[in-house]
Design a protein around this nucleic acid. Structure first.
Lengths: 213, 213
DNA sequence: TCAGCTACTGTCATTGTTGTAAATAGCGAT
DNA sequence: ATCGCTATTTACAACAATGACAGTAGCTGA
C-alpha cells in the first residue's frame, strides 16, 4: 500500500503539451482571473510539474502572451467567419448576431478578452482593424439597400456606430450578462438571454434598413 | 546631506486614513487590476508603511471588501441621482444618459465594477434591484406617452430590454471604449465618444417613444 | 539495440507579499 | 504640562510563487 509507486511519465509532443497547458491556463483565467494563472496550480490541474510550463513558455509572462495570442486569433477567426459565412450574403442580421453572441459566450471568450483588455495584456490591439473593416463591409450594403428603396444614403458614421454598439453589447452580454439579468430580476426566466439577443438583433436590423421587413 | 533626517510622521483621523488608503487602492485597481492591489505599493503611493493599512482594514481581503462596498454604494447613489434628478421629470433621455455615461467613465468607475464582477467580488449583487426598479420607473411613462399618442401599450419586456441594453452599453463603453474606438480606427477623431453617446441616447429614445421627435 | 534528443521531474534559491509584534509619536483631554 | 489613546513605524516571521539547474525517461531513427 505504501510501497514505492511507479509513476508513468507522460510525454507529449511539444505542440500538444503547449495546447494542453494553454487550455488549462485559459480555464483558470476565465474562472478566476489573472490571479488564477499560477504555474503550480495550472501544472497541478493537468498533472505535470510546473517547470514543464517554463520549459515550453520560457516564463509566466511568455505563457500569458501565448495565451492572449491564441485567444485573439481564435476570436478574430470566429468573428470573421460569422460575417463572411453563408448567412452574410442575404443581409439577414439575426443569424449573424446569433453567431457573434455565441462566439463570445462560449468558453468564456468574452471574459478572457475582458481580462486581457482590463489588465492591459491587449495593448498591441489585435482587432485593430476588425471593426473598421466590418463597417466597410456593411456600409456599402446599407447604401445600396437604401438606394433601391429610394431612401437617402446613410451616413458612414451611423454604420460605424451600429457596429460599435454591436461589439460593445456582444462583449458586455458575454461579460456581465448574468449579473445584468440578476440585477433585472429575470435570471430565472428561461430563454430570456435568447430573447434579448433576438430583440437586439432586430433593433440593429431596423436601424440598418429602416423600411425592410 | 547624509545626516539623520527627522521624518515627520503624519497622523490622520482613522476615517481620513481609511479614505486616503481606499483612494490609492482604487487608483491602482482601476489602472492595474487586482494584481495592482499590493499593500506595500499602495502604502508607498501615499507615503505610509504597509502595516498601517492592515491596522485599518485587518487584512488585504478586508481592504478589497471595503473598496467594493464603497465603490458600489457610490455607483448606486450616482445612478439613482441620474434617474431621479431634475431631468428625469420631462422624460428627456439625453441628459440622463449623459450622466450615466459620465458616472461610469469618471475615475474608471466602470473598470472598477468590471474588475469586481469578473473577479467575483460582487457576488452579493449590489444593483440587485436597480435595473428592475429602473424598468418599473420608465415603463409606466412609456405606456402613458403611447396612450396619449393613440399607440398600443408597449410590452414590459421591451422596456426591460431597453434598460438592459443601456446598462450593458454604458458599462461596455466605460470599460472598452478606448479599445473599441481604436479597433474602429477612430481613436483620433475628436468628440467621437460624445457623438456616440448622443447617437445611442437617440436610438434609445426613438425606441422608447417612436413617434416623438 | 543503442544513441541522441528533448519533454519532463525533483530540488532548491530568490524574491516578493501578507501578516505579527513591539516600540514610537502625534494629538486631545484632564 | 503630562497622561492616555491610538495611528503609525520598524523589524521580523511565514509563506507562496517564479525561475534555475541538474538529472531522468520516453520516443525516434540508425
Amino acid at each position: 500500500m505504501t510501497g514505492v509507486e511507479k509513476i508513468k511519465r507522460v510525454r507529449r509532443t511539444a505542440e500538444e503539451a503547449r495546447r494542453v497547458i494553454l487550455d488549462a491556463a485559459e480555464r483558470r483565467l476565465a474562472d478566476l482571473g489573472p490571479e488564477g494563472i499560477r504555474l503550480q496550480d495550472i501544472a497541478a490541474d493537468i498533472g505535470i510539474s510546473h517547470p514543464t510550463i517554463l520549459h515550453h513558455f520560457e516564463s509566466r509572462e511568455g505563457l500569458v502572451l501565448a495565451l492572449t495570442r491564441r485567444t485573439t486569433e481564435q476570436l478574430r477567426t470566429d468573428l470573421f467567419a460569422a460575417f463572411t459565412g453563408p448567412h452574410a450574403r442575404n443581409a439577414d442580421i439575426h443569424p449573424i448576431m446569433e453567431r457573434v453572441f455565441d462566439v463570445l459566450s462560449k468558453r468564456g471568450h468574452a471574459r478572457l478578452i475582458g481580462w486581457m483588455i482590463l489588465s492591459g495584456a491587449l495593448t498591441p490591439n489585435p482587432e485593430q482593424f476588425l471593426l473598421r473593416d466590418l463597417t466597410d463591409l456593411i456600409h456599402p450594403m446599407r447604401v445600396e439597400e437604401n438606394r433601391l428603396r429610394g431612401l437617402p444614403a446613410p451616413d458612414r458614421e451611423d454604420t460605424l456606430f451600429i457596429v460599435m454598439l454591436g461589439a460593445v453589447t456582444a462583449f458586455g452580454v458575454g461579460l456581465f450578462g448574468t449579473v445584468v439579468r440578476r440585477g433585472a430580476g429575470v435570471e430565472d426566466e428561461p430563454h430570456i438571454a435568447e430573447r434579448f439577443r433576438g430583440w437586439f438583433a432586430e433593433l440593429l436590423r431596423s436601424r440598418i434598413l429602416p423600411s425592410a421587413q
